[in-house]
Simulated assay, not measured.
Amino acid sequence: MYVAVKGGEKAIANAHALLAQEGRGDPGTPRIAVDAVAGQLAVLVARVMNEGSLYDPELAARAVLQAQGDVLEAVTLVRSYRTTLPRFGYTLPLDTATLPPQRRISATFKDLPGGQQLGVTFDYTHRLFAEATTDGPVVTASAAEPSGPMPRVNDLLGDASLIEPERSPDSTDPEPADLTRDPTMFPMSRAERLQALARGDEGFLLALGYSTQRGFGRTHPFAGEVRVGEVEVEFDAPELGFAVPLGRVEVTECQMINQFTGSADKPAQFTRGYGLAFGRSERKAMSMSLLDRALRADEFGERREAPAQDEEFVVSHSDNVQATGFVEHLKLPHYVDFQAELGLVRRLRHEHEERAAAVAETEEVRA
């Protein structure tokens, strides 16, 4: 580190002071409150929670403030804090089938049981700067209220055997590994891959998901359904013999309907892609579902030809904390390494010049 450099320790202390000063901004403006970030920058806070692997809007908002809006720095703060937390047990799987959506759309069926619900989204806004206002309009109800039960689109297709079952009737459901505690081993189970994708960098997943739509992967996707809403979390307490409700968390779920498959023994049917993320994170959930399907190539006997179909490539490079550390470590002192390579380059250049001089001398003698 730069502490070893003459005056380095004092320089680092000054750098910390400058960072705090720049982060505070104009002292004449009010300091941004944590609850303001959590309430008004909910999409940003959701991204930090997803990639930080911890659902805590207040803590994620604090991280955003401390990191001065640097998402990757905020994610690193959240993950570092997460490692200090004790683990008391596990919750039951979320029952997203009964999730009461604040937003629910489908690109596959116009008339859905229960109806489409637009909810909170940027999808229908004009991409223009709005005038600054102190308070926005108060909306007490959605413009499209649910008109009845809302079965999932993929379940409707599943009832008609038009899409692969969620799990094969003869398959087991092994306990998934915990990527935050166990080393990553390839090949991974689908559950482990989904863990990695949920923690993955949104931009990286978006780029790879986009690549599958452009032909670099066998997806041919349709957005079966996107839901956003709150779902109850229940803690499994073996000593009590029943689950204990802990509260509700906001999640975004995407069920993607993908390229159909079939064989001489099996009729044609659609295949699935799945994504689930904390908070309002539609882009993340959709990207996850595209990659989930692309990474299932082996299950359908497909050739893995595209980057999005390569499990090790996707998982190993989607973790932005690891990527940030590896890229930014280049800023740290590499004096010894560079001097060694500099010496090598100088020696090679000297040898090249000697050879060139010898060749020139030989040519001159021949002439």
Rank of each mutant, 00 (worst) to 15 (best):
E299T: 14
L206H: 13
P221V: 08
S289M: 02
G203P: 05
A367C: 10
T91V: 13
R283I: 14
K110W: 06
R167P: 00
A323K: 14
R304H: 04
G28R: 02
A177W: 02
D123K: 15
P187S: 12
Y81Q: 08
D182C: 08
T219Q: 05
R214S: 13
D173L: 14
V315L: 12
V233S: 02
T184N: 00
L59P: 01
A61F: 01
H329K: 14
D56Q: 06
T76V: 05
V139K: 06
A160W: 07
A143P: 10
V249L: 09
H317R: 12
A36N: 09
P267D: 06
Y274K: 07
G136M: 09
G52H: 07
E73W: 04
A130C: 08
V3A: 02
K10Y: 07
R181Y: 07
E164F: 02
S147G: 14
R346T: 13
L19A: 03
E311Y: 03
L92H: 10
H329I: 10
A340E: 13
S263K: 09
L157H: 06
D35Y: 08
D111C: 05
H317C: 12
A294I: 08
A4P: 00
A308Q: 03
E239P: 12
D159G: 14
A60D: 00
A196L: 09
D182I: 02
G203D: 13
E311R: 04
P86S: 06
A277F: 05
E239Q: 12
A132Y: 14
D265V: 05
H334L: 05
E192C: 04
T271Q: 06
F278M: 03
E363V: 15
L156Q: 11
F216A: 08
A15D: 05
S189G: 15
T125Q: 09
E328Y: 15
G114D: 06
Q269M: 15
T252D: 01
V251T: 07
S106V: 00
D236G: 01
L246W: 08
A323Y: 03
A20N: 05
P101M: 04
T184W: 00
H317L: 15
E353P: 04
A144H: 07
R103W: 01
V64Y: 00
E9F: 03
L206Y: 12
A141M: 15
F109P: 01
Q195D: 09
G148S: 08
T219V: 15
Y90I: 12
L194C: 01
V226L: 12
V34M: 01
Q117S: 12
V64R: 00
F186A: 07
Y55I: 01
D155E: 14
P169D: 06
G136W: 07
L157S: 05
S147H: 11
T108A: 15
A63D: 09
R346D: 13
A177K: 09
R193I: 15
F122T: 13
R193P: 00
R272P: 02
K110T: 01
F278P: 00
G28K: 03
V244P: 02
Y274H: 11
G158E: 10
D56V: 04
G241Y: 10
D56K: 01
A60V: 00
F242E: 08
G273D: 04
D292Q: 09
A306W: 14
F88S: 13
P176F: 02
L290E: 02
P30H: 05
V336K: 14
E230I: 02
E145V: 06
Y124N: 08
Y2K: 06
G301V: 10
A358T: 12
E341I: 09
Q309F: 12
D298T: 15
